[in-house]
Simulated scan of single mutants.
Amino acid sequence: MTTTIEWTEETWNPTTGCDRISAGCDNCYALTLAKRLKGMGSAKYQTDGDPRTSGPGFGVAVHADALTIPLGWKKPRTVFVNSMSDLFHARVPTAYVARVFAVMAATPQHTYQILTKRPERMLRLVGEEIDGGVVLLDAAYAGGFESVATTLYEAEWPLPNVWLGTSIESDEHSKRADALRKTNAAVRFISAEPLLGPLPSLGLTGIDWLIAGGESGPGARPVHPDWVRDLRNRCQTAGTAFFFKQWGQYRPGGDVAQPATWISPDGRPCSADYPDAAAMVRVGKKAAGRVLDGRTWDEYPTSRKAVTS
Rank of each mutant, 00 (worst) to 15 (best):
I211W: 01
V148H: 02
R118A: 09
S191T: 03
T150N: 14
G206Y: 00
I211L: 15
I211A: 04
R124F: 08
L136W: 01
N184D: 13
L231I: 04
T116M: 09
D171E: 00
A142L: 15
L125T: 02
E172N: 05
E193Q: 07
N161D: 07
A192S: 13
A220N: 09
D226K: 11
L125H: 04
V126P: 14
L196M: 03
L115E: 10
P218I: 01
E154D: 03
R121T: 07
P200D: 00
Y141F: 11
G165F: 02
L164D: 08
R232D: 11
A177Y: 01
R121S: 12
N184F: 04
A185M: 07
N161F: 09
S167R: 05
Y153H: 14
S191M: 09
A139W: 09
E169D: 13
A241D: 11
V162Q: 00
E129D: 02
T183C: 12
R188F: 06
G133N: 11
R232A: 06
L115P: 14
T151Q: 01
A155H: 04
G213L: 12
R188Q: 01
E215A: 06
F189E: 07
K245T: 09
F145I: 02
G203Q: 11
Y141K: 08
N233D: 15
G219K: 15
T240Q: 06
A241S: 15
L164Q: 06
L159M: 10
D131K: 02
A220K: 10
S201E: 04
V126T: 01
G214R: 09
L115H: 10
L159Q: 01
G143I: 07
I168Y: 02
R181T: 13
T116L: 08
G213D: 03
F244S: 14
G127H: 00
T150E: 15
I114H: 01
W209I: 04
L196Y: 04
Q246C: 12
R229A: 12
A238I: 10
V126Y: 01
A139Y: 08
T237L: 14
T237P: 11
K245E: 12
C235M: 09
G239T: 08
R124T: 13
T183Y: 09
A139I: 07
L152W: 01
L199N: 03
R124C: 10
P218R: 11
W247I: 06
S191L: 03
V135W: 00
V223H: 09
D171P: 15
G214P: 15
N161Q: 12
P119D: 05
A149I: 07
R176C: 11
T150F: 10
E193L: 09
L152Q: 03
T116E: 03
V135E: 04
D138W: 04
G203V: 08
R232W: 11
S191N: 02
N161M: 11
A179V: 05
F243G: 13
R118P: 05
R118D: 02
R118N: 12
I114M: 07
H224G: 15
D208P: 12
S147L: 13
Q236K: 14
P198W: 00
G213A: 12
W157M: 09
H173L: 14
A177R: 01
A177G: 00
L196W: 02
L137W: 07
L204S: 01
D171T: 05
P194G: 06
